[in-house]
Structures are given as structure tokens and as C-alpha cells.
């Protein structure tokens, strides 16, 4: 859907007018051409803002026992609290304000997803670059491992690791990194292999630059476009996967109440019709994932040279 919005004929004249646009400016204007992507990006910013400033925005600290009253548990959305504020989204089984719990949960979900994504990106793209640059046996071996891993679904590998290691923040991060690195390695390698044969790399080599310099200063920057797309998509994946594993009770411990755990905690109340305890954390999770995916979608269209006008 965003593809078609991109091919709008009316932006062509600005190009023809011969105005100079820096690549970055052009990228930004291309990106915000689609209102869907713009809205998604704004939504993502709001979510990140809400997570970052959760203690300032939320009406109560849901994990401060002094502020939570069990008497107020399972109240429907819009109920008034004794303290005088409204439970916008109701309360959960322990009497916590759901809106506050969601903001705090977002913090955990986002940080676990983003941090493991960054680690996986660093490991994966280094491995992918090495494979492309070395070629030969090293490349064959690395890509065999990548293929092997990608032939198993992410959730299965994560379940395997967690079944062996047990649950915990560090363990789920290990699982998420293990699951994701191969995607980065594959993407970077496939781009780098094309870049490797270009003249500028040859020139850099002829200048006698070190392997490290050629790899990280010359090839890597030219592989960034597809890498950025993979980062967005994989981050969304990581967040969803963490939520799923935590929901199944094999991910984060109860002391780190991410969105997945909030949903899981509300599951038992669902059958008695108290939908909001699971529903609203799910909506928050959904909005996060959808906004990241939509941004990623638009990035793919904007950065894809084949769709370049």
C-alpha cells in the first residue's frame, strides 16, 4: 500500500527543476510523503516518550505497595480511585492502575527488545561483513550456519534455549540475540558481496588501507540501507517474541512485568468477562509493533533502489 503512495507522479517535477537535495533531506522528504508512515512514526515517538517518562506521566507507581490498594482490584475502566484520580483503563487483579502498569511494562518490553536488537545487529553484521570480505571457506561455513539456523523458526530456538537455561532477563536477551543475529548476518553479507566488487573498494585496497578500515569505513556504510530496514523489522519481532515467551511463562520473571506478563496475568480474568486486564496491554503491544512495522515498511520502500524514481 505504501509502495503505491510512493509512486505518486506529482513529486517528479521537483526533481526535474534541478533543485539540489542532500541525500538525507531527500530521504526524509520521501519518508514523510506517506501519511501512514508519518502517523506511525509519530505514534512510535509517543510510545517511546510514554515509556521513558513513565514515572512522571502515570498517576501511580504500580509497583510501590504503598500506592496500590487491593480493595481497588479488577475495577472497570473509568472507575474513580480513593486518591481521586480516574483509572483510565481500569485496574488489574492486584489493584494496580492498568494505565500506569502499561507504561512501566512498555519500558521493560522496549528496552529488552531494543538492547537485544542492537547486540544482535553488532554481532550479526560483523559476522556477515567478515563472510563477504573473506569469501571462500570462511564464507561457506558462516553461511551454512546461518542457513541452518534460519531453517528453524525463531520461537523454537528461543524455547529451546529457555528450556535449557531457565527464565530471567539475561537469559531472554541471550535467546533473542541468538535468534536474531543470523538475519543481520545474511542481510549484510548479501549487500556487502555486491559492494566488494565495486571499484571504490578496489581503490581503497590499492591505497594499502587495512582490512579493518576497508570493511568498516568503506563497505559497511554502503550496506546501511538494507540494515536499517532489518533493524526496524527485527526490533518489532524481538518485542513480540519476548511478549510471547513471557506470556507462556518461560520468558521474563514476575519481577519484570513486561507487556507480555501483564497480558498473561489478565488471562485468568478473561473468562469471567473482565476483558480489560488483558485487552489494554495487548493494544499497547500491538500499537508498538504496528508502528515499528509501518515505519520499517516505508523505510524499505524509500531505501529500495529498485523503486527509486
Amino acid at each position: 500500500m505504501t509502495t503505491t503512495a510512493n509512486q505518486d507522479p506529482e513529486i517528479a517535477p521537483t526533481e526535474l527543476a534541478g533543485q539540489f537535495q542532500s541525500p538525507f533531506r531527500r530521504f526524509v522528504s520521501d519518508f514523510f510523503e506517506s501519511w501512514v508512515a508519518t502517523v506511525a512514526f509519530a505514534l512510535f515517538l509517543v510510545i517511546v516518550f510514554g515509556a521513558l517518562f513513565a514515572p512522571l506521566i502515570s498517576p501511580q507507581d504500580p509497583y510501590d505497595l504503598a500506592q496500590v490498594d487491593v480493595m481497588e482490584s479488577r475495577l472497570p475502566p473509568g472507575s474513580m480511585s480513593y486518591q481521586g484520580y480516574t483509572f483510565l483503563l481500569g485496574t488489574d487483579g492486584a489493584g494496580r492502575d492498568l494505565f500506569s502498569a502499561i507504561l512501566y511494562g512498555l519500558r521493560i518490553s522496549l528496552s529488552v527488545g531494543v538492547v537485544s536488537g542492537i547486540i544482535a545487529m553488532i554481532i550479526g553484521s560483523s559476522v556477515g561483513l567478515t563472510a563477504a570480505y573473506c569469501g571462500g571457506r570462511v564464507e561457506a561455513l558462516i553461511m551454512r550456519i546461518v542457513d541452518l539456523q534460519l531453517s528453524f523458526p525463531a520461537i523454537l530456538i528461543a524455547l529451546m534455549l529457555l528450556a535449557v537455561f531457565g527464565k530471567g532477563v539475561d537469559k531472554i536477551m541471550i535467546a533473542l540475540v541468538t535468534v536474531q543475529w543470523a538475519y543481520y548476518a545474511r542481510t549484510v553479507r548479501s549487500t556487502a558481496i555486491v559492494e566488494r566488487q565495486k571499484e571504490y573498494v578496489e581503490a581503497a585496497r590499492c591505497l594499502g588501507l587495512s582490512h579493518k578500515r576497508v570493511l568498516f569505513h568503506h563497505i559497511l556504510p554502503n550496506c546501511l540501507a538494507p540494515l536499517i530496514v532489518v533493524v526496524t523489522v527485527q526490533t518489532a519481532h524481538a518485542i513480540a517474541l519476548e511478549a510471547t515467551l513471557s506470556f507462556l511463562g518461560v520468558g521474563l520473571p514476575q519481577t519484570e512485568p513486561s507487556l507480555g506478563l501483564l497480558i498473561s496475568n489478565g488471562f485468568e480474568y478473561m473468562l469471567s468477562g473482565r476483558y480489560w486486564i488483558s485487552f489494554f496491554p495487548g493494544i499497547a503491544l500491538l500499537l508498538t509493533i504496528v508502528s515499528i512495522n509501518l515505519v520499517g515498511d516505508q523505510l524499505r520502500d524509500v531505501l529500495n533502489p529498485r523503486l527509486q524514481r
Binding site: M1, A240, G282, L286
Partner: peptide
């Protein structure tokens, strides 16, 4: 475009949460 938007949603919706919602709507 609606179909494609739906498919993006299908990708983004966490499976377990959709399951809960299906139970909520169709069973409860």
C-alpha cells in the same frame, strides 16, 4: 489496500493476544 493493511496487521498482531481476543469475542 484494505487487504494489504489487514495483512500488515496480521503480521504485527501477536499470536497469543489474538488468541485471547478470539476467546473473548467468540467464546465469552
Amino acid at each position: 489496500k484494505t487487504i494489504m493493511a489487514g495483512s500488515i496487521l496480521g503480521f504485527s498482531l501477536p499470536t497469543f493476544w489474538v488468541g485471547l481476543m478470539l476467546i473473548m469475542v467468540f467464546a465469552v
